[in-house]
């Protein structure tokens, strides 16, 4: 039999075969349920802002987002977020809570390097690309909408 140690391509094929398959059905289901639960909670909070704090329905999204970001940050700081995310995957990553987690976790991690070179410069290490591509996409979409 041929020596796989001399044949990177054949070895890579074998390694691919031996990779355990992620449980796609379970992962999709958990992501759907957790992501859905987060959005339902967001809707619940938004309704509270409309009903009890007299926000106009089209303006209630702002305090709701801020509240969800606060909850995401709090769960990150208390060490709960990553435990939920381990199972929920995209369910926690896609809503604004995931964005909050990426910033707060980086800020926590690099606090010991000081406020300027640590927190200040590393805080957006993960979220930075979301902002950059978010802004670029918004610009392109805005341009298209202006031309149409």
């Amino acid at each position: 039999m041929k020596n796989l140690l001399r044949d990177p391509k054949a070895y890579q094929e074998l390694a691919e075969q031996k990779k355990p398959r992620p449980n796609l059905a379970k992962n999709l289901f958990t992501a759907f349920v957790v992501g859905g639960a987060i959005c339902t909670l967001g809707q619940f909070i938004q309704n509270i802002y409309i009903k009890y704090f007299n926000f106009a329905p089209d303006r209630a999204g702002d305090p709701t987002t801020a509240t969800m970001i606060f909850i995401g940050g709090l769960l990150t700081a208390t060490g709960v977020f990553d435990k939920i995310a381990r199972h929920a995957g995209a369910g926690t990553a896609v809503p604004v809570t995931g964005f909050a987690n990426s910033i707060v976790s980086a800020a926590l991690e690099f606090k010991r390097e000081g406020f300027v070179l640590g927190v200040g410069s590393k805080m957006f290490a993960l979220a930075g690309s979301v902002i950059v591509f978010g802004v670029v996409t918004a610009f392109v979409v805005g341009l298209i909408s202006a031309l149409l």
């Binding site: 990779k19 992620p22 449980n23 992962n27 700081a77 060490g79 976790s105 980086a106 991690e109 993960l126």
Partner: peptide, 17 residues
Amino acid sequence: ERQFRYPTEYGAQLPPW
């Protein structure tokens, strides 16, 4: 983890390998 991957508290779903 922080050097090779993500901050400790970052919520990432790891692959089974």
